[in-house]
Amino acid sequence: MRNPGERATDVTVDRIIELRDVNKWFGDFHVLRDVNLAVARGEKVVVCGPSGSGKSTMIRCINRLEEHQEGTIIVDGTELTDDLRDIEKIRSNVGIVFQNFSLFPHLTAIENLTLGPVMVRREAEHEAEARAMALLERVRIPEQAQKYPGQLSGGQQQRVAIARALMMNPKVMLFDEPTSALDPEMINEVLDVMVELANEGMTMIVITHEMGFARQVADLMVFMDEGEIVEQAPPQEFFANPRSARTKLFLSQILTH
């Protein structure tokens, strides 16, 4: 383990994700501005920032749910281009969990998990089911396997969604505000699963305003505002002495309630 405050930024470190001068526009609206971010294998990055600052857009570019117009995105050695094979490869390495779960409502929990591997990887159904059950146990809801998403609580749905992403054995997991659609009493059951995942060494980029989680898990804090990465620093430094005024203002706003 690294010393607190020290970060693996030197070039010899194995970078699994790299964004270099990434720019994106929605029409005339410049939503990502010269975004630079490097994530080492096993690193946990927590992204925060005001609403509309481009956090979701940034991580959605990493698995091509959005397309960037300028700059370079490299995931596990593969550059993201218009080549469908590259996109396919990157998507199979990157799992994503959405704010509103986005489970398939017409499929049971376990079917939600097995659909991808069976369709995409041609995995045998019984093998996929065995792995799915193991993952559902890991997120602590094996007894809900046969239920439909509509019959599950928000926290349970989000845990199914995490398990669904893990089914593809991703090397990186992206989380877009995974707990912000949840009732307060369910937030922890989801965060616990994420902490476990972090402890197992998964590379993670997490957009969240759960600062307790961030302090506990993050190797790197990223603050975004108006499409820019304004500040990135290890959590101790980030919380103790934020350099930019915008970060200070933002932190004072979210830490006071």
């Binding site: 998507r91 986005s102 992403a165």
Partner: peptide, 17 residues
């Protein structure tokens, strides 16, 4: 909803799948 398409894309399903 768009999220359904995105979730399917994210697990790697093709358009027809």
């Amino acid at each position: 909803p768009r999220g359904q398409h995105e979730a399917a894309q994210a697990v790697g399903l093709t358009y027809w799948q």
